[in-house]
Amino acid sequence: MKIIGADKLEDCFDGSVVFGYRFDEAWERETIMRLKSLGEVDYFPDFPRPFFRLRSKSGLQVKGVEGESTCRVIYSNEGKEVEKQSFEGLFVSG
């Protein structure tokens, strides 16, 4: 799964930044679970279109829907560079 694009969607009041990521293939359970290396993952397989979210201690958040080739990522004000590297690193190495 490769990142094919990332668009900055919003600058938040608290300094965090929201990005929309696009991938070359859809999120599957396996790729969702890979996010666990970055923090706590909630996965809701019983929803009509399963929702997942990641929350890290530093403030990184990832939200998306299984079966979609996009996701929304929120980088915190304090740790955005490190968080960006960690998140994107999952896919570079994957």
């Binding site: 809701f44 929803f47 279109r49 829907v65």
Partner: peptide, 12 residues
């Protein structure tokens, strides 16, 4: 914001 996202994307 998350509720809005889930209602829309997961439940339509």
């Amino acid at each position: 914001e998350e509720v809005g996202f889930v209602l829309s994307e997961s439940f339509g």
